[in-house]
Design a protein around this nucleic acid. Sequence first.
DNA 1: CGTACTATTGACCTAAATCAAAACGCGTGG
DNA 2: CCACGCGTTTTGATTTAGGTCAATAGTACG
Lengths: 239, 239
Amino acid sequence: MVSATLTKLSDLDGQAPFNGCQENFKQPEAAGKHLGRKQRLSAHDVLFYEGDKAERLYEVVRGVMMLYKLLPDGRRQVVYILREGDMLGFSNRDFFDCTAEALTEVELQVFESREISTSPMMQHYVNRCLLSQMEILHEHTVLLGRKSALERVSTFLMSLVPNRGGHGCSGPNEEGRPDTKTVALSMTRQEIADYLGLTIETVSRVISQLKRRGLIKVEKQDSIHITNICGICQLTGMH
Amino acid sequence: MVSATLTKLSDLDGQAPFNGCQENFKQPEAAGKHLGRKQRLSAHDVLFYEGDKAERLYEVVRGVMMLYKLLPDGRRQVVYILREGDMLGFSNRDFFDCTAEALTEVELQVFESREISTSPMMQHYVNRCLLSQMEILHEHTVLLGRKSALERVSTFLMSLVPNRGGHGCSGPNEEGRPDTKTVALSMTRQEIADYLGLTIETVSRVISQLKRRGLIKVEKQDSIHITNICGICQLTGMH
DNA sequence: CGTACTATTGACCTAAATCAAAACGCGTGG
DNA sequence: CCACGCGTTTTGATTTAGGTCAATAGTACG
């Protein structure tokens, strides 16, 4: 539907991917003259709260963040996980509808809303970004509305394995090669539970079950070695 | 964040809201020269299936539609409800990620993707549209992840009462005036269940409970008279 | 009116929540 | 290096909200 092949907005500012130094600003073509402001967050820092005035957009350059909403009695639902290249800070009305919190150390590229709306190229990129988030949100809606605990956790694990499970799934690479991968959760059990619409105990029990079944090994609390990717994939409810 | 005040894309074509006749095309300013193609659907017609090639956008001019996804074993999750003024047909990759089906008789305005991407005004409008859908999706995520059956059904009913429950909630209009409203569901119990992540029986039981508590009256199967809006609102989990 | 959905109600079951305790990590300071 | 203490995770026992299965009751339509 749209044709751009950009994968990171910050790349608009130079030929090479942005790598954390302030040196190479070229003020290029259509991209506009944003200040290239960077912002750093420590794990669990809040970038903005639900209800704050929305004035900037952010791109995650490094690290992982989450968007969540709270009910008045304290129930929390994590609504979206943002990784490198993802954008956040969109708002329809003038206020954020979610709270944004860092899950790990994070490095952000900051854009003033004005910079975006004056650059067609950025507009276009932002649009793409929204569409991709929407698709993930749709998929997550199915997870929350219709999947069992085992299916939810399996789907979550698969989401951490690039190029597997999804549409362009490369399959279990025909030859009997490893089909194995170590993934960093970057989230506590509580955060995973709040993302998957479960309790911490249920998440823990499912992980133990997968361990007992020999599909995964828990290396550190937040680092899981998947010993049989295809096996996990079979449990997502999508096959 | 964006400044437009348009509320319907089809209005771009003339000063007055589009009202179902093909007469008044003005080929105006920036809006571009789309053909103004109209399409009609009967209840339960499918506009497109998940996986179909995405080539057009649609605006709901009249009626109600839903987007849904199916799991291979037949479980269904309704992901979004579209009403007058809403747009559908967005896609990130080149294929639809959901199936779109009419819930009632529907009248659509059809746009070729090309028309959209060449008109900045339309781009801008589509952007707004996406942001608003995203916000509703976030809210629905909380419903599916964290709310009880009673809260889900109450939230659903409140979503059918304009200007109540949400951010600009006008409150129970201080004077002891009615605080009453009849809403058209435009959905069967099964469709509501699939939207709220429940079973048909649970939806039915909750509705019966609200009836017994004197908060609603079921007029026809798909028309509910809410006798105490504020009472329902208290049950949404958001107060 | 009869046929055929659609919705409601009831009885029972189960997956996940809740409550409670034990085990594990992990950083701190001796 | 080890002991201590705190937070997180795991495990166990029990409860419960909502699911499943089955029968009945509406409602709509020709």
